[in-house]
Amino acid sequence: MILELAPTDRPFLPRGVRVQPDRVRGGMVLLAPEKAIRLDAIGEAILARVTGQASFDEIVDDLAQTYNAPRDQIGTDVQRFLVGLRARMYLGVNP
């Protein structure tokens, strides 16, 4: 399976994967089966937009606008982040 998301793919966090505040260490953490991943500001910003409704392109557009950053660079970063999650089965994708 190709893990890269197509522009129209709509990613979501599947059952058993969630983002929640880390009330002891601060910040947000991604919790998945037998795994806890501390999110940096970028990861947090991406996952806040992973709703199952927004497409990959819409997520990238939104981030590029919000952070006033070059769209190509954002697209590459988001793709790399989401592919990493998908390889571990922490991310689902609706066509």
């Binding site: 880390d22 002891v24 260490r25 953490v29 919790l31 037998e34 795994k35 806890a36």
Partner: peptide, 9 residues
Amino acid sequence: ADLGVLQLH
């Protein structure tokens, strides 16, 4: 949980 544990097996 108060101590910082996130995952309980």
